[in-house]
Nucleic acid binder design. Sequence first.
DNA 1: GATGAATGAGAGTTCATTCAT
DNA 2: TATGAATGAACTCTCATTCAT
Lengths: 202, 202, 202, 202
Amino acid sequence: MTSKEKIIEAAVHEFSKGGYPGARVDNIAVKAGVNKAMIFYYFGSKEELYKIVIKKIVGELFEVIKESGGLSTNLNPEVFFETFPENYIRFFSDNREYLKIIGTELIQNPENLKRALQGFFNSETMLLPKNLRKLFEEWYEDGLITEPEPVHLFLNIISICIFPIIARAIPETIFNLDLENEKFIRERIVSVKNLLKRGILK
Amino acid sequence: MTSKEKIIEAAVHEFSKGGYPGARVDNIAVKAGVNKAMIFYYFGSKEELYKIVIKKIVGELFEVIKESGGLSTNLNPEVFFETFPENYIRFFSDNREYLKIIGTELIQNPENLKRALQGFFNSETMLLPKNLRKLFEEWYEDGLITEPEPVHLFLNIISICIFPIIARAIPETIFNLDLENEKFIRERIVSVKNLLKRGILK
Amino acid sequence: MTSKEKIIEAAVHEFSKGGYPGARVDNIAVKAGVNKAMIFYYFGSKEELYKIVIKKIVGELFEVIKESGGLSTNLNPEVFFETFPENYIRFFSDNREYLKIIGTELIQNPENLKRALQGFFNSETMLLPKNLRKLFEEWYEDGLITEPEPVHLFLNIISICIFPIIARAIPETIFNLDLENEKFIRERIVSVKNLLKRGILK
Amino acid sequence: MTSKEKIIEAAVHEFSKGGYPGARVDNIAVKAGVNKAMIFYYFGSKEELYKIVIKKIVGELFEVIKESGGLSTNLNPEVFFETFPENYIRFFSDNREYLKIIGTELIQNPENLKRALQGFFNSETMLLPKNLRKLFEEWYEDGLITEPEPVHLFLNIISICIFPIIARAIPETIFNLDLENEKFIRERIVSVKNLLKRGILK
DNA sequence: GATGAATGAGAGTTCATTCAT
DNA sequence: TATGAATGAACTCTCATTCAT
C-alpha cells in the first residue's frame, strides 16, 4: 500500500471519531506510519484530505447501489424492497466509520455532501436522478405503491435503513440490552423488509 | 435572562454547529454577550458546559414525551401512531439545534447519551422503560402489531421520525428541489403515520 | 509601557533585520518580554502587525516633514534646501531601523507603502500633494530652480538624503575607511546642501 | 542552457522578490524547470546559491564599469559625468532584479556585499580602489570639482543614479502619475547629468 | 460577578534538506 | 544527473484556561 493510500485509510479512521474539527493531523500521520509533512505533500491541507475522504465514501456508496441492481428503469418495487435494504444496511454496518463520517457531515455540513453527490451525478451517466424520480412516480401511477411523493418515499427508505445503526444505543440503554452485532443486523434487515413491503406496497 | 442562561442558550447554538470539538468558547461568550471568563466561572470548563447542555436537551425531550400522553400502560397502538409521530417530529423540527447536538452525540459519543438517559430514568418515576418494553410486547401478544421485537419497533418509529429532518438535504440535492419547511414537515407527518399504520398495525 | 507598545517596538527591531519574511514572531515576543499569543491577541496576525509598523513609520516621517516648516506655499527653495536635508537626514540617521524597513519595503513591496502614503494624504489636510507639485512648478516658472520636472526634483532631493545612509558600506569598503557616525552625518549634510544649492538653484 | 544556468537565472528572479529569507527553493526549482534536489546537488545549500548569485551580480556590474571607460587615471570629471551616469542608470534599469537584490543586501547584510566587493578588488588588477580615491582627490586639488571628500563625491553620484529607480513609486503615488519607463529613464539621465555638472564641476 | 490581559500547550502548515532509486 | 518521496525542525496561529483587578 502506498503512503497516499495509508494516509487516506488513517484519515477515515481519525475523521470518524470527532468529525473534522476533532480530527488531528498528527494522529493521522502516526496511524498511517508516515511523516506528518507527507499529508501536506500529497493533499495540501487537512481540509482537502477531508474532501477526498468524503468523495471516496460517496463513491463507494454509489458502487454499492450500482452493484445491487442499480436503479434501472425496469426495476419493480417488490424486487427493490427485497434487495436494496439488505445491501444498504450491510454496507453501512460493515463500514461504520463511513457511516459516522457521512452522518456527522449530514448534520453539520450538508453543503459538502451536496457537492460530492452532485459531482457523482455529473460524472456517472448510469445513475440519473431524473430517472429515479420518474421511476418512483411511475410506481405510484401504476398503482404499485401508496406513497405519491418521491422525496418521502426516498426518505422513508433510507431512514429505516441507516438511522437504526446509529441509534441502536438508545433502545439498548432503555431496554437494558446488549445486542450481538450480526444478530442485530439480520433482525434489522427482516424488520425493514416487512415494514417497507407492508407499509408501502399496494 | 441571567448570564448563566444566556451562556447556555449560546452554547446550544455553538455546539450545534461543529459538535463539541468544533465549538469555540470564544464564540459562545460573544454570542451570549458575556465575558469569556464568566463561562469558566459558572461552568468550570467547556466540557462541563457541554454536559449541562446535553442534560437540558434530554430533559426537554422527555418533557415532550410526557406531555404528549406519556407512555402510559393503557395506550393502544392506533392512538400512539396517531399522536406520537406528530409531537416527536414537531419537537425536533422546532428544535433543529437540539437535533443536531443529539445526532452528533449519538454518532460519536453514545456513551455520553446513555449516561444522560439513565440519569433521567433513575429520577423520573413516571417513565419506566420496563413498562414501555412490556407495552410493546403486549401489543404484539394481543395481535395488534406485526413487529414482535420491541427494539426494532422502537428503532423503526424513531428513525422515520428523526432522520428525515436531518437527511432532507439528500433528496433535495438528488431531485433538485428546494422544499418549503412547513409544507415539508406536514407532508412528513402524513407519510410517517401512513407508513406506520399500514406497516405495523395488524 | 503597555504590552502593545512593547510589541510594536520589538517588531520594528525584528522587521528591520531580514524584512517581513525574515522576521520571527517568536523573536518579537521574546524581545518584547511578552507571551507570543499576545501578538495575535492584539494584532491578529504577523502581517497586520507589519502593516501597523509601516503606518507608524510613515506617520512619524510625515511628522518630521510638518515640523520642519512643512511644505507651505510661501516656502522658497533656498530656505527649503537649507532646512529640509538636515531634518530628513537626521530623522533617518537617528532611526536606522525605520530606514531599513522603509527601504526594503520600497524595493520589494512598493504597493504596501503606496497604500500607507495614500492613507496619510487622505487624512492630513495640511500636506496636499497637489500643493507640493504646484510649488515645485512655480519655483521653476519663477526662475528659481533649473529642474522643470517635479518628479525629478523630488527624486534628486530624497535620493542624496536617504541612499547614502544605506550605501555607506560601499565607499567604506572601496576606500578602506571606517567612518565615525556623527562626523559622517555632519559631512553628509554639508555635502548635500552644497550639491542641491549649486546644482538646482538658479 | 544547462540546468545549473537555469537554476541561477531562476534564483535571481526569486531572490529579487522577498530577499533571501523570502525566497523559496521550491519556487526556484519550478521556475528553472528542474528537480528541487538538483539545486542541492549543484550548490549544496540555499545560502551557497545565494552567494553565487551575489557574486555574479557584482561581477557583471564591474564588467559594465570597465566597459564604460573604466576608471582610468587619465579620466577627467567632465567626461566622467557625461558617460558614467548613463551607463550606470541603464545597467540597473535594464537589470531591475539585480538592483533589488543588491539594494536589499545593502540594507540588511552589508557585510556580505563588502566581502564580495573585496573579493573582486583582490582579483582584478585593473580596478584599484586606491586609484579611484586618488583620482577624486586630484580632481579636487586640480580645482576641477567642488567636493573635497571622495567618499561623499562617490555617494552623491551613485545615490542619484541608483535610488530613483527604486524610489520611483513614491512620487508616482504622491503626484498620482504613471510614468512610462523608457521616457522616465531618459529624463532621469538628463536630470542627473545636469545636477552633477552644475553641482560638482567648478 | 465581571473584565481585559495573559498563558502554555498544541494545532496546522512550511521549508530546507536528504534519501533511495 | 535526475526524480519523487521522505524528514524534522521551525513557523504562524489557536484555544481552553487562568490571573489580577
